[in-house]
Amino acid sequence: MEWFLEPFALGFQQRALMGGALAGLMASVVGTWLVLRGMSFFGDAFVHGVVPGIAAAVVLDINPVIGAALAALFMVIAIEVVHRNTTLSEDTSIGLLFVGMLALGVMIISRLDSYAGSLTTILFGDALGITTVDLITQAILAIIIITATTLFYRPLLALSFNKEKAQIWGLAPNRAHAALLVLIAAAVIGSFQSVGTLLVFGLLVGPPAAAALISRTVPRMMVTSAVIALFSVWIGLTLSYHLGTAGSATMALTPIVIFFLVLAIKQLKPRAKDQVLVDA
């Protein structure tokens, strides 16, 4: 038991656990829709797209959350502009912005004396440096995200099912899509300080993907995803303490390992249940 309790004996360790848990909760709930809509590449690009905003905020000594929010807004608008004004597919416009924004962020941060340290903090987070103010911000964002996800459940489900059907049902798929982008932005902004921009993606995609393997309905997938995320944060921090590895990286790796474990177990199980019914 001591093996499990020892990593969280001190205040900063407990704040790391709480910060990671809130990040995991936010990212896994929003990530469920991201995975269901096949927007994982967008999510990957998005978490990197906020880097220049955070870097500029560090250089200008303003709140990184503001910088990240502005960069996220720019990213979404730029993807839409490229997509609507060219014949290029959306993944090409996402790819362009992905590389462009990440490069811009590294350029900005490279002007700082503590270049390597700042870049590492942005990309990989600083779970052990989370303050009480950070936790309060994260908790507010988590409440907003979970409430919004519950309220917009039908529009988001309809959008995941089929955009045209969603429109006929009067569930405004474009507005639902915009709301989802805002929720993703909020989850990324609320998570990057604890797990870093690079590793938020692990919590956005890992837990929902693992949950998708064992869930038959969307609400169950969301709950399972949140449980996997919380477990990943806890076991990730515990392992990082005992193994001496980076906390945020260990947290982000855990759901990916869980995904492959679940997949392996599913492959080994008898597959009778998965057989397609033959028409009567």
Binding site: L36, R154, S160, W169, G170, T217, R220
Partner: peptide, 22 residues
């Protein structure tokens, strides 16, 4: 068919135009 839905849930979605979002 990737969205995890049971047959009943999928058919229930047909009522969304009447029920709206809430």
């Amino acid at each position: 068919a990737g969205t995890p839905l049971t047959v009943t849930e999928a058919v229930q979605m047909g009522r969304y135009s009447t029920l709206g979002a809430f």
